[in-house]
Amino acid sequence: MSKSLRLSEKWFRRGLWLVAFLFAWFLTGLGSTIVGDLPKVEQVRSLDDFMDPQRTPQLKATIKSAEREAEEAQAALDQAQLKLQTAQANNRAARETYSNWLATRRATERPEQDEELLRRTRELDGLRQTEREALAAVERQQQIALDARQAQQRAQTQLQDLREQARDSYESALRAQELRVFGYRLALTLPLLLVAGWLFRKHRKGASWPFVWGFIIFALFAFFVELVPYLPSYGGYVRYIVGIVLTVVGGRYAIQALQRYLERQKQAEALPDTQRRRELDYDLAQARLTKNVCPGCERAVDLKDGKTDFCPHCGLCLFDHCGHCHTRKSAFARYCYACGTAAAQPTTDAVPPAVQA
């Protein structure tokens, strides 16, 4: 920023740059929301959409039915196993009691206990029968659970086969959908980049430059940063190719601009000294002088010695003397800093610096 600008003008320029960044920030937020929501224009597809529409529901129903039967069989099996354990325990206890009684019976040799022997034997037979029935119930529930699990596994295997058959079609459709969504995003961001290039070329120095620069920052961010998370595997090619094209175009523009600038400088250096100083911008001239640079040819000049009045490179008058007090002053100053007398010949057109910028 030029050191010769008025203090209020400096703050106004800073405020305008703040407007540019705020404008870019809000545009970026809006663009991010739009780019993120673009996939919603496409119907969300899943692998089931490409599977056999008749067999798939049947197999899923079979799997659910088998799962339900397996759960019920497992619950019944748990109950049957509990009953079996109870019957086995009762049988073991009865046999122990019977063995003890039978040992006593043999020791006493009492014939009147033959009826008791028969009764206890019948009770043991009944307990053994109960145990066998409980064991049979457990085996039945185990068979039911096994059948249900096998039916579930068969249905899942068939369903997996259908999924594998539909996977190629699904992935092909997914790639096509991804390409379409990428096209939507590219169709949104690439024109923004082109518009930004046009604005940079035509309006970057206009009165509305804060909005122009804000839009340029937004367009660059949207294409080269915001678009990155949504790029498919091949999307990087587009981004890098566009970057290369922009670099080549911008480089050619810069080279041509440099050549035009050097040509203008040559033409300007051929003009009379008074005309050259009159055509130079006042603020720009003052800023270059403070940096020990010639305002005309922009080459370095040692201005600290207090003796150099003309540029040794292009001959432009840099310092002259006041016509009233003869004090050495800048040839671009509008008034003498020692006595305040106006310069004899104005060195710039009477155009406010804000309008020139």
Rank of each mutant, 00 (worst) to 15 (best):
F12W: 15
E116S: 12
I241Q: 00
R149L: 10
L59F: 01
L102S: 14
R92T: 12
V351H: 02
P312E: 10
P53H: 02
Q267C: 02
R122T: 09
A166W: 00
D302R: 05
D309C: 05
W213V: 02
A219Q: 04
L194S: 06
N100E: 13
K64N: 07
P295F: 07
V248A: 11
K205S: 09
E139A: 13
L38T: 04
F21M: 12
S65A: 15
D37A: 13
L284D: 15
E96Q: 13
Y237R: 06
V19Q: 04
E69K: 08
P57N: 05
P346D: 04
R106N: 09
V225P: 03
A87E: 14
Q265V: 06
A137M: 04
A76Q: 14
Q88Y: 00
Q156F: 05
P352L: 05
A87K: 00
Y337I: 09
L246K: 03
G243H: 04
S330K: 03
D37W: 03
R120H: 01
D78K: 05
Q177D: 15
W198H: 10
V212M: 01
A338L: 10
A103T: 11
R68M: 15
Q345I: 13
H203Y: 14
P232V: 02
E96K: 09
Y240N: 12
G306N: 02
R328E: 13
A145K: 11
E42M: 11
G243S: 05
L316I: 11
E115L: 15
E226I: 07
V19E: 06
I216P: 02
T130W: 01
F50S: 03
K40L: 14
Q345N: 13
R92E: 12
L22N: 07
Q129I: 01
A254Y: 04
P312N: 08
Q81I: 02
K3L: 13
P272T: 04
H321F: 07
R95I: 10
G250K: 04
R132D: 10
Q113S: 12
P229L: 04
L280A: 13
V41K: 08
Q150R: 15
R175M: 11
Q158K: 05
T290W: 12
Y261W: 06
Y98C: 04
L77S: 08
C322M: 03
D283T: 04
S169Y: 05
S208D: 11
Q165L: 09
Q256Y: 10
Q267W: 00
Q165A: 11
T56A: 09
